[in-house]
Amino acid sequence: MYSPVRMASRMLLMALGVLSVAPSSAAQLVRIGAAHFPPYTIRPETGADSGLLAQLIVALNQLQSDYQFVQVPTSIPRRFGDFKQGRIDVAIFENPQWGWKDVPHTAVDMGLEDAEVFVSQQLPEREQSYFSNLQDKRLALFNGYHYAFADFNSDTRYLASHYNVTLTYSHDSNLLMVLRGRADIALVTRSFLSDYVLRNEQVAPHLLVSERVDQVYHHYALIRPQAPISGEAFGRMLQGLRDNGQMLKIFQPYKIALVAVPQG
């Protein structure tokens, strides 16, 4: 039997149902560029949700409902074009020194520090002084990375003309070259080396790690001027993850330091 009261109740419940899902459907999509940079991002083009960026995105999405963060695969050389053309809104784990000088952006200090270290094969006669001079060494480097010892110039022709280099797209391969005597020194991030030794415990005694640091990675998130999120809003979210302990939980196991973020 038709009942106006029952019909009105149903309509009210339907309306409440629509309202209950409105906040999530209204969330603005923010695309974070994911370039292969282990352990931060690992082969994003394969669709694998591995690496620290994937964990950070989960934490950001759990923290709030105004924005929906997703990772969009890019590459080390392609990320500049993707950023300028609006394919990605945020370039993350970056530094303005790494080729971003002429690209408009807002830099957000993430308060994260890693370091690039030199690694060679452990030999009886080899000491820390081995890392003092790079000119006479065979270097295994990651193609596209900006190294301090080379004045942050990642151009392959420049590197080849000034150093004896082999360029690859794999830190694992570079360390294997060192272990097999095909390269004298590889440069890797401290975070990657920590993860590599955990995965390959048997190689630790065969590696000599430099006390010399090539550069300290002080990480920034670079926000595109037309991005749906502002640098200020993104910075507040990162602070929220510091406050609830998620930043420490994600990055401390990889020996990535949380440092103070300058206010203002």
Results as ranks from 00 to 15, higher is better:
27 A>M: 09
174 N>H: 01
264 G>F: 13
111 G>A: 11
205 P>K: 12
45 E>W: 09
176 L>Y: 09
228 P>T: 07
220 Y>Q: 10
204 A>V: 00
244 N>K: 10
59 A>G: 10
23 P>D: 02
68 Q>S: 14
159 L>M: 13
11 M>G: 01
174 N>P: 07
94 E>M: 00
29 L>I: 10
125 E>V: 01
103 V>S: 02
171 H>T: 03
52 L>H: 01
84 K>F: 05
126 R>W: 12
195 D>A: 14
54 A>R: 02
231 G>S: 03
24 S>C: 08
17 G>A: 15
224 R>K: 15
192 F>I: 06
192 F>M: 01
29 L>P: 08
25 S>G: 03
168 T>W: 01
119 V>S: 11
164 N>Y: 10
118 F>I: 09
215 Q>W: 08
164 N>H: 15
234 F>V: 01
73 P>L: 04
166 T>D: 02
160 A>L: 12
153 N>V: 06
133 N>T: 14
52 L>K: 02
58 V>R: 15
253 P>V: 06
220 Y>D: 09
59 A>L: 05
131 F>V: 05
261 V>R: 09
105 H>R: 05
128 Q>W: 11
68 Q>C: 11
45 E>F: 07
130 Y>F: 15
257 A>P: 00
132 S>F: 11
19 L>T: 09
164 N>M: 12
44 P>G: 01
178 V>I: 06
11 M>L: 15
45 E>P: 08
79 R>H: 05
102 D>K: 12
172 D>K: 14
98 W>A: 01
211 E>G: 12
229 I>P: 09
222 L>W: 04
257 A>S: 13
253 P>M: 04
43 R>G: 00
166 T>Q: 12
120 S>R: 07
167 L>I: 08
149 F>H: 09
149 F>G: 06
159 L>C: 12
146 H>F: 07
64 Q>A: 09
189 T>C: 02
133 N>W: 04
